[in-house]
Design a protein around this nucleic acid. Structure first.
Lengths: 145, 145
DNA sequence: TATGAAATAACACGGGC
DNA sequence: GCCCGTGTTATTTCATA
């Protein structure tokens, strides 16, 4: 298990706020040399704490303005790996969470409009493994940065 | 409304895969000059399509190994803005989705253990605005990269 | 309106301490 | 953990279609 100290936490916080911060900027903020900061970030990556960097996109501006969660129930024989495997092939599906209990999975989808949403839900049900769905339409959201 | 062409979509895809890709690397991939790539990314930021950059963290390695969604019902008078305002102050809460229908909100939490989860749920109920919760424990997850 | 080329300033990276 | 030298990148300016 990789050891994480307070400086590492501060670095992670800075990179969560802006993943493109430069090492020298973070070095100045934290009060460390650039090399030390780079070494720590490299270590966090190698230790698997940092799994990658990504851009945050406003999908509504790309015309994908509708978001929903779909609670899905699968037939008894369906393993969680199968839920994820089939879902990840659907481009509208952004995330899949397998759940203990009822429902079996919570699927986060992003679509252009309600017709499009209907198509996605129909596609899920057509796999034969899905025995029921309940869709939660997202009206607004807040995500910690 | 900002116009997005095919090259912009390719840039967004590259940055989704790795938010720290250099302009020169993307320029080489796409077949454009570094300056052109930088101008496009700057434009996407100013147009609000790109809202930021962030690091992806494996929170389990930080000791926050338990994730759950909490379906929350609020008393009738509670506006969505209030649901988000109170939740965002709770550090364990990672995201809040206000929902059309039942439940009123879906809250994504990350905690150290089940005792910790209980504390967070108790905290929600103690606000007086929450009339009911149903917790969906996350066993596994997949997020599109 | 979008591009490429070129120059400079800032940064990343590696080695040595 | 720091400092320093080298190569790379970011950023700005200018010229062009």
């Amino acid at each position: 298990m990789i050891e994480i100290d307070d400086i590492d936490h501060r670095l992670l916080r800075l990179l969560r706020e802006d993943g493109r911060r430069t090492f020298s900027e973070m070095a100045g903020t934290i009060g460390l040399s650039v090399a030390a900061v780079k070494r720590r970030v490299d270590r966090l990556r190698e230790g698997g704490v940092i799994t990658g960097f990504s851009v945050q996109v406003d999908y509504a501006k790309l015309g994908w303005g509708i978001e929903a969660f779909i609670e899905v129930r699968y037939s008894g024989a369906t393993p969680a790996s199968e839920m994820i495997r089939t879902s990840s092939a659907v481009p509208e599906i952004q995330a899949v969470f397998t759940i203990a209990g009822d429902p079996d999975a919570l699927i986060h989808v992003r679509v252009r409009d309600l017709d499009h949403l209907q198509t996605v839900i129909d596609g899920l049900r057509r796999t034969g493994q899905v025995t029921g769905t309940k869709t939660l339409m997202i009206l607004g959201s807040w995500v910690r940065r």
